[in-house]
């Protein structure tokens, strides 16, 4: 089949990142894979417009996060009774805290920290200005610090302009 090379490049480059962003939110590999595929399908369906988007990867990521949030509604936490190693506990705790964040903060955290997007690109992907992104990130860090009981976590140095 014929797929625009630009989309193919985006897919091959960004799929692991989008998958991981979705996994961070849900902790469910199957759901994360499905959500990532759904997000890329939506991107391909409107590729002619999206290819000129300032951050198609960011668009796909936020779409995947939306997809995960929707799937999680009314669904039980799947990790609640799977305690394991300290690293796993840390991951579970962090994912649970991420899940409690408002959607826009989730998106900002995923794009900036996970996909390593600078604030400017994160802002472009989210369709907001850079100040708004910084606000989302600051509030997210603050919420995570409180949820994890780690006041030091809220360190603005984590933000990369």
């Amino acid at each position: 089949m014929t797929v625009d090379p630009g989309f193919r490049q985006l897919y091959e480059r960004e799929f692991p990142l989008v998958f991981r962003a979705a996994f961070l939110l849900c902790g469910d590999r199957q759901l994360a894979e499905d959500a990532a595929q759904e997000a890329f399908a939506r991107a391909l369906a409107r590729w002619r417009r999206l290819r000129t988007h300032p951050s198609p990867g960011g668009w796909v990521t936020t779409t995947a996060l939306n997809t995960v949030r929707r799937a999680l509604r009314g669904r039980p936490s799947i990790e609640r009774a799977n305690p394991g190693t300290a690293d796993l506990d840390e991951a579970l705790t962090l994912r649970a805290a991420i899940r409690e964040l408002p959607p826009r903060q989730q998106e900002a955290v995923a794009l900036h920290y996970l996909l390593d997007m600078p604030v400017a690109e994160t802002a472009a992907a989210m369709g907001v200005d850079q100040g708004t992104v910084k606000t989302h990130l600051a509030r997210a860090r603050d919420a995570l610090a409180r949820a994890l009981d780690e006041p030091d976590l809220n360190d603005a140095n984590d933000v990369r302009s």
Partner: peptide, 27 residues
């Protein structure tokens, strides 16, 4: 750094991307 912790929490074996289902769904 928060970034590293988030990446650790998001670390999972990434499935092999297959474009076929994506293309069909897009259609």
């Amino acid at each position: 750094p928060l970034k590293e912790r988030l990446r650790a929490a998001a670390d999972a074996p990434v499935p092999s991307p297959t474009l076929g289902p994506v293309s069909r769904r897009a259609r």
